[in-house]
Every structure is written in C-alpha cells, then in structure tokens.
Write a protein that binds this DNA or RNA. Sequence first.
DNA 1: TCAAAAGTGTTTGCAATACACCCATGC
DNA 2: GCATGGGTGTATTGCAAACACTTTTGA
Lengths: 240, 240
Amino acid sequence: MPLDNYQEILSDPPAKGRMISNLSVDCCIFGFENNDLKVLLVQHASGRSQGQWALPGEFVLKDRNLKEMPHHVLQRLTGLENIFVEQLGTFGRLDRVDYGRIITIAYYALISPQKYNLKVGADALDVAWVNVAEATKLIYDHNEILDYAMIKLRDRIKTYPIGFELLPDKFTLTHIQKLYEAMLGHSLDTRNFRRKMLSSKLLQATSEVDDSVPYRAPKLYTFDKERYDEMLVEGYFFQL
Amino acid sequence: MPLDNYQEILSDPPAKGRMISNLSVDCCIFGFENNDLKVLLVQHASGRSQGQWALPGEFVLKDRNLKEMPHHVLQRLTGLENIFVEQLGTFGRLDRVDYGRIITIAYYALISPQKYNLKVGADALDVAWVNVAEATKLIYDHNEILDYAMIKLRDRIKTYPIGFELLPDKFTLTHIQKLYEAMLGHSLDTRNFRRKMLSSKLLQATSEVDDSVPYRAPKLYTFDKERYDEMLVEGYFFQL
DNA sequence: TCAAAAGTGTTTGCAATACACCCATGC
DNA sequence: GCATGGGTGTATTGCAAACACTTTTGA
C-alpha cells in the first residue's frame, strides 16, 4: 500500500467562531514504511503561509476538551480514530508565528501503515508522508517541534513498547528491529534484539509466514495488547 | 531556616491589559525539608476562589515568551531567579475552572532551602509550604496537576540527578539519600546508594563536616555542576 | 548453486542487590 | 556507657553485550 495513494476527500475546517483564536494544536504524525520513519506534512492552501509545508494542526475548539483536539486533527486529515497520541509540550515564543501571538500545544501520534487513507482538507493544498530526516524548512517553529518530538520518541521507545503502534497487525521480527533501528538511529544486534523481544512476552507467534518475499519466508507475529497494557501500568523498562 | 518565616512583601500583579486572558501558567514549586517533599501553595485573596488553596500561577503575559512565565511566577512569589524549571504539560478540560475556558500550562520548579524567602503578593492571602502528601483539596484541577508532577518527578529523578536542585550547596550523603527516598516513596539500601552516588563522580567531598548534630558529624559534600552538565548532554542514566 | 535474509547459543563482564557490623560523637 | 546515626565490603545474581555460522527459500 503506497503512502502517496490517498483519497481526495474534502473535509471542511470548523467555522472561525468555534475556534479559540490564540491557541492551536499541532501534530507530529509518524508512520513507518520501507525502513524509514515518516512524518505527515500538509501544504497550506491559503493566506500568508500558502505553499509552505507544516505539521498538521488546528485552532483549539471552544467546545472541545484539549485532549480531544489531536484526535480531531487526525480525524479531519485521515479519517482515523483510536490513534495513539501523547502530548509533547507547549510552544510559546513571542515571534513563533508571523501573524500574532499564537501558542501551540504539540502532540505526536503513531499510526500503522494499514490505516493510511489520507484526506486532503479544504485548507490544505497537499498532504505527504516525508522522511523525518528530509522534513526540513517547515513553517514557523515546526522544525523545532519536530526535533523535540524525535527526542521524546527516542526516549519513549527505550522505555515503553510504543513502536508496535507503527506496525501492521502482523509483522516479522526483522520488521520491528528495523523500526527500532530507524527510531534510535543506529543498528542493533539481531540475536540480542530477538531474545529480548521474545522474552518480553509482548509477541505472539502466529502460524503464518510472510511468503511474499523472494527468500526464506519469515514468521509473522502479532502483538499482545493485554500484556502491553499491563506493562504501561507497571512501568516497564525496555533497555535497548 | 524555618520554612514559614517569610517576609510580607507586596508584589503587585500585572495589569489585566497585559495578560492573555484565556491562558495561564501554574507552577508546582517543590522544596525539601525535614525529610519531606513540600510544595508551595497560595491562598487566593479575592474573587470566587477566595480562601481556597492553589498552585501559584498567573495569566500568560502578552509581551513574554512562554518559557519566561514560570520564572515570572517564581520571581513575584519568592524573589528568586535562576531556578530549575521544566514544563510538565498543558491542561485543558472544558470544565477545569468555573469561570470560563482557561487552558493552563503547568511547570514544576525545584528550589533549595537556602533560598526560601517568600513574598506574599497582593493577590494572595497566604503562602505556605505543604507536605505533598497533605496537599489535597486544591482548587480547580490543581490536584490532578500536582499528581502528574509527582509522576514526572519520580520518573525524572531516576534518570537525571535533578535532586541536587533541592539541596543546599553543602549536604551530607544521608541528606541526599533521604531526599531520594522521599521522592521515590520507599527506602533505599544505604551502602548501595552511597557507592552509586560516589561512583557517579557528581559529588565532591569537602573538608568540612556538619557539627551541628548531636552524634558523629557527617562529611559535607558539594555537587559538581560541570560533571552534571556533561551528564545532561550524554543522556546519563541513573538506575535506582 | 547462488543470493538474501531468517534464525539460533554461549561466553564474558558489569552492575544491581542483598546483607550486618563497627565507628565516632554528644549527652 | 549508651543512644544515635555515620560509615564501610563482599558474595551473588541477572542482564546486557559481543560474537559467527547454519538454514531456508526463490530465482
């Protein structure tokens, strides 16, 4: 399923009167394909920022709890619900945007490739998955936000098994190793990695293999959501 | 130096016109005394919230960068500068305050006991250091914020040696052990703790001892700021 | 038969843990 | 001399790290 194969479904932005005009939410939406970590960017369609690439975002809505806002952004942009989201932090330099004093609350989201199904809203010219390393020259302070997201993500992946949020339901051990390597920015020892993953009890072997490959077909695993939820509570540490 | 011995210096709140009226900053300001972790609370002097205890806070000022705001709060409240501060997160439930849609950015600050020197602003009836365990029944969602601060603090103390921010310039090994125990909520093995602390190279033994005690005078240590800064960069991990 | 990746065990060293007694001081 | 906390060492265990070859499959 290629990443650039999205549907052109218009999704209208909310009316101005429903927005809190000095407060926005911006999202670093991450995906993983072809052993690369990607981030979802939009190109602004109008106004002073027309043509520039940005993290997707919205003004906070008057009638929504703050924590619903990143889901609202994801819903408008991708139609997806129940996505993993965490707050990153709030950015409020005086000159961070060029048209007023806007403070933004940044979130990051992790979505699995089965779910790529992008809409392009009426306020965006284009939407694209971009390799994180190539997502330079974003508008406003969005590169600062993205850099911060990467730091947090690396930190988080070492402590919680959130990487699974980026994988399809069934995946191979190599698949998840490549994901960790992409996130951490260095390679990992295969034997040690596999031992650790399997001993974590997070994985469940299926009887299936991935026979679409032109070499020895690797086993497919699924990921044990119950065990994962237990770990989130007990403060699991994942040393890598 | 007793904690409740503060000066009654009035520090006027900023004019309403300088504030962003839907955005506030609230601070969990932590101190450590008598082996207890304390948080600084204020009692509101006027308005609907009069008499209630709260985390100190302010509305965000139009002409200040967001990251200066917690320092502004600390400055007004305590007169202190150069305090360790980190952002916790932003809280925005629709009904979190009872007089409108206010979103608040929460910070936590760590201050050392030498620096206790509190002012009481014109907008506060009273200011007090309260044991964290006893800081219940705060106004709005401030208990939620404080609970979250404690979780973050525990997490952080396990990874970075931020505990030193809560100690005076010279301290004993027992002193810092008690601090860690208070933060983590359980006791630690003295021999292991000392070995680990000393091998971290964060401490520098002085030739002095604390001879104010009625038993064997313990050695005083200072803390090596340079080594600490190195560690913050190299992502030091402090397993406790 | 070759290419490409899957899959598999053992050894080594370090760091965390558990554990108990003597020491110095002031009263 | 006694009460109080200061200060110290060793043995064990578990986990992370380093390391290389055989297996399977499709082309």
